[in-house]
């Protein structure tokens, strides 16, 4: 119990004194995960739109598969991407392993099922009459998809925020693809792992509290946004 209380105090101390290492790690976490969420959204939201609005064989199975992948273990994704980016793997020549860019790619893959799946759910919540109205007013397929996404925009933004949150708090991909290199790929989650293995439980707790704090802010924004 002592650790938790001391952890809270240490967290406050780290934040108030703007501890440079912690600030750097936090900023890096946010940048990497935010980039991953934004890029993934750019691909996954239209993709979700296409999947939901087209009719094709095996659609149901595909959606089921996507939803199953929501809970992909982060270490599994980490391993998969590692095998792709390793020097001995197909994309080794791109030299993305142990770089922040590699981490972004890994996290994009990790959260894509969530983004695609939740976009599909969001679109299902839109009245089918909207689709008819848009079509009858002359919209083509792309315009219809955009219109329905726009109608579901609150739920879609919520999906992106959820994806962002998942990317921010995951450790499997960050560790395997980033390598926790100080001043380069070290982020909050990998720092927590490191501090824990070193036995620095208070610092580890403090970092965890900072991470939770950021997640709380995220979720509050989400609720405010949805409350409109």
């Amino acid at each position: 119990m002592e650790e938790i209380w001391n952890g809270i105090l240490r967290a406050i101390e780290l934040i108030v004194t703007l501890n440079p290492e912690v600030m750097e790690i936090t900023a890096r976490s946010l940048i990497i995960s935010f980039t991953a969420a934004t890029l993934a959204a750019a691909i996954d939201i239209p993709l979700g739109g296409l999947i939901e609005l087209r009719v094709f064989r095996g659609k149901r199975a595909l959606v089921d598969l996507i939803q199953t992948l929501y809970g992909l273990p982060t270490v599994t994704v980490g391993l998969l991407v590692f095998l792709l980016l390793s020097r001995s793997g197909p994309f080794g020549s791109l030299e993305l392993l142990y770089t922040p860019t590699g981490m972004v790619i890994g996290q994009m893959i990790l959260i894509s099922p969530i983004l695609i799946g939740l976009t599909i759910s969001a679109l299902r919540g839109v009245s089918p009459h909207i689709r008819d109205t848009a079509i009858s007013l002359g919209a083509n397929e792309g315009q219809v998809i955009r219109t329905i996404i726009k109608e579901a925009r609150f739920a879609v933004v919520a999906a992106v925020l959820i994806g962002f949150g998942r990317a921010l708090s995951e450790v499997g991909v960050a560790m395997m693809i980033g390598g926790n290199i100080r001043d380069y790929t070290r982020v909050l989650t990998t720092s927590i792992a490191l501090q824990t293995s070193m036995g620095n439980l208070e610092t580890s707790m403090a970092l965890g509290i900072i991470l939770i704090g950021i997640s709380m802010i995220l979720n509050l924004s989400l609720s405010r946004f949805q409350g409109r």
């Binding site: 009245s127 009459h129 909207i130 008819d132 109205t133 009858s136 007013l137 002359g138 726009k150 109608e151």
Partner: peptide, 19 residues
Amino acid sequence: IAARRRMAMVFQKPVMFKS
């Protein structure tokens, strides 16, 4: 699509876009 753009329809219970 080209043909539809020459027509317009008003449905029985029209729905409005969220805007």
